[in-house]
Every structure is written in structure tokens, then in C-alpha cells.
Amino acid sequence: MKDDKKPIFFHNRTPVIPQKEEKFQQPTSIRKPLSDEKLKSLIDKHKSTRYRYIRKLNLKQTLLTHLAYNQNFEESMKYNLFESTREEPIDIMLIDTSYSMKRHSKSLLDKIEQLSIDLVLYHDCDIFEYQSKKQDFPPFSGGTSLYRPIKRLEQINEPMTIYHLTDEECSPHDRMKTEELVRKMIVSGKGYYRVDIN
């Protein structure tokens, strides 16, 4: 083909014109994303460990007591105590601050007060740093990505419960990737994910 715009037909067959693949581009944010080190330190700061004791039956002592002293079996049961630690999952609230969430700003404060949360993070296309002395929100602007913030939290590899306040207005591709990621997190036991649509 000399001219790329005009396909040539041979024997009444339709030509196969290669289609250009459209690559999915993640929306970008005007805000500076939170660095991985800072995000990890925030989560480490809120980690908590719970100590508990596990009782395990000492069968040898139980049988010796039962046979030697001719006691009832239930009365002769002996236990060993083992100390065990378990990391508690961190409760994280992830708040979407894209422009479409502006109409939900009044109800967001009510949702935050209803839950006891360890850490509140804000995102548009990525998690960004925002600190405020009073309870308010960063300016609602820009697009949104659900996948990128959740992927960054998943990469930290800590047990967590994510409460996501979002209107889920994102691209179908982003939504599909997010659903796959959340399914993988839940199946692997890394975390629990709940979306609250205002």
C-alpha cells in the first residue's frame, strides 16, 4: 500500500486495517502524592498488637491425675497457658476529594463521626497529604482513581479495614481493576473493604 489512507481491495475481500490500541491513562492530580515512606510511617504509628492467652490441654498431666488420684476426668483436666500476639487490623477511612464529591461534603463529616477510625486519608487520583487543625476537607477538585490509592495501601502488606467514602465516579477500566484488587485482598486475608456511597 503506497497510500496509508486508502486500502487496496484484492478479489473483493475487505482489508484488515490494524487498529491503534488505546492505552489507558491514569488521571493525574495537581496535588503532591504522599510518599511511600510517609504512608508507611503513618500506618506504623497506628498499628496495635493485642496479647492473648491460649489454653491448651496437657493430656499427659490430665491422664496421670485422673488415674493416680482416681478423680473424675473433668476435674482432673490440666491446661498449659501460651501467650500469643495478634496484630489488630488498622481502620483506615479513605475519602475521595474529587470534584464530583463536592455535593456530598456535608454528609462526609457525619460519616466520619459515626465510625471509630485510626487513620483518615484523602485521595483524588492518588493519596495526598492534608493536615488541618479543624475538621474540614481539602478543596474538592480534579478527577478520581479508586485503583491507585487502594493499590498503594495493599502494597504496605498490613492487616487493615478500609472504609472508602466515594461516589465511585471513575472510568469503567479503573472500576474493573479496583474490583479485582479488592477481591484479591479479601481472599488473601489482607484486609476488608467497604464502600459507602453517599
Rank of each mutant, 00 (worst) to 15 (best):
I95D: 01
Y99R: 14
Y99C: 03
S100H: 09
K102L: 11
H104T: 14
H104Y: 14
S105H: 09
S105P: 03
K106N: 13
K106A: 08
K106H: 11
L108T: 05
L108M: 14
L109E: 14
D110W: 01
K111A: 07
I112W: 05
E113K: 14
L115H: 13
S116F: 03
S116P: 10
S116T: 12
S116A: 08
I117T: 15
D118Y: 01
V120W: 02
L121Q: 06
Y122F: 15
H123S: 12
C125Q: 11
D126N: 09
D126R: 08
I127P: 11
I127H: 04
I127W: 00
I127F: 07
F128Y: 14
E129G: 06
E129L: 10
Q135Y: 04
Q135V: 09
Q135K: 15
Q135H: 13
F137W: 03
P139L: 08
F140A: 05
G142T: 05
G143C: 07
L146K: 00
Y147G: 02
R148C: 11
R148F: 09
P149G: 10
L153I: 13
Q155W: 00
Q155S: 11
Q155Y: 02
Q155F: 01
I156V: 13
I156K: 08
I156H: 02
N157Q: 13
E158Q: 13
E158N: 09
T161V: 15
I162M: 04
I162F: 02
I162V: 15
I162A: 07
Y163K: 10
T166N: 03
T166M: 01
D167M: 03
C170K: 06
R175I: 01
M176Y: 10
K177V: 02
K177M: 12
M185R: 15
I186G: 01
S188C: 11
K190E: 12
Y193F: 15
R194D: 12
R194H: 14
V195W: 01
V195E: 12
